[in-house]
Structures are given as C-alpha cells and as structure tokens.
C-alpha cells in the first residue's frame, strides 16, 4: 500500500492553501475521476518564490501535491520544467501502480501554473520551451481507464 513518507505527507501536508494575487495558477484533474488539484505560484528572479496548493483526492493525490510543492519551492523555473511525475513518486518512496496515473497530478498542475505565468509574460519564456507544451491536458484525460 502506501509508503511511510506518503502517509507522513498526507498527514502533515506542506504548502496547503491559496496565494492571493498569484503570478500563476494551474488547475488540473477532474472531480469526476476523483482527483482535482489547484496550484498557485509566486515567481521572483526566475525562481518559485512561493507555492501553495489545494487538492480534492485520495491519500496519494494529497501526498504528491505536498511533495511536489516542497520539491519546487525556491527552485529555478528551469528545474521545475524538468520535474516528472516519476520524480515526485520516487521522492515519496514510490506509489501503488494504480495511483501513478490518476492521483499524481502535481507536475501537471505546476506546468499549468507556469503556462498561466508565461501567458502573461511571454518574454520570460526560457529558450527552447514552447508555451503550448505547458498547457494543461484536457479535463477528462485521467478519466480514461488506465
């Protein structure tokens, strides 16, 4: 089932909440399939100065949200763009196989928040990154049977 670290992050999630006047907001998932996540970012000097999240979902959804926000806080945006779902799952000591797809939304949400940020500041988009690659996946993408 869940690793101790997943349970620990689920019990004491980091960075829960909302940032008023956030520089970027990402919303992914769909309550229909059981998980929905919102991430708020503050960007300063090309770094994630602050990050907060709200998640509706199971233990894995909440733990991955918490871990991902911790992994990117204070980090340069280039690092955040390289972060994968697997990185977040690995940092938590692994996730049950059937949770990898449906409940590991944090990376998608972060990219969606960056999409929102760079839509307002296209001049700051790092070389080689296309805005459309950061766009959130269609709403129902995780409703399909894995």
């Amino acid at each position: 089932m869940y690793s101790d670290l997943v349970i620990e992050h689920f019990t004491n999630p980091r960075n829960v909440g909302v940032i008023e006047n956030a520089d970027g907001v990402g919303r992914v998932g769909n309550p229909v399939c059981g998980d929905m996540m919102e991430i708020f970012i503050k960007v300063e000097d090309g770094r994630i100065a602050d990050v907060k999240f709200r998640t509706f979902g199971c233990g894995a959804a909440i733990a991955t949200s918490s871990m991902a926000t911790e992994m990117v806080k204070g980090k340069p945006i280039e690092d955040v763009l390289r972060l994968t779902r697997k990185d977040v799952a690995d940092a938590l000591g692994g996730l049950p196989a059937h949770k990898m797809h449906c409940s590991n939304l944090a990376v998608d949400a972060l990219r969606a928040a960056l999409h929102d940020y760079f839509s307002k500041h296209p001049e700051l988009l790092p070389a080689g990154v296309r805005l459309e690659d950061l766009a959130p996946p269609p709403e129902d993408s995780s409703a399909e049977e894995a």
């Binding site: 309550p31 059981g34 199971c58 449906c102 409703a143």
Partner: peptide, 21 residues
C-alpha cells in the same frame, strides 16, 4: 474509486443517481 483498483466510483451510488464527484 480510490479504495479499489478501478477509477470509477461505486456502481451502486452511480445507479442511485449520485454524480461521480
């Protein structure tokens, strides 16, 4: 759904007309 291996919520509640969320 999250307590099972499937992604869809209880077929019972669905049949009773409860929306998935």
């Amino acid at each position: 759904a999250c307590t099972s291996m499937s992604l869809s919520p209880s077929h019972v509640l669905t049949a009773m007309g409860f929306p998935p969320e």
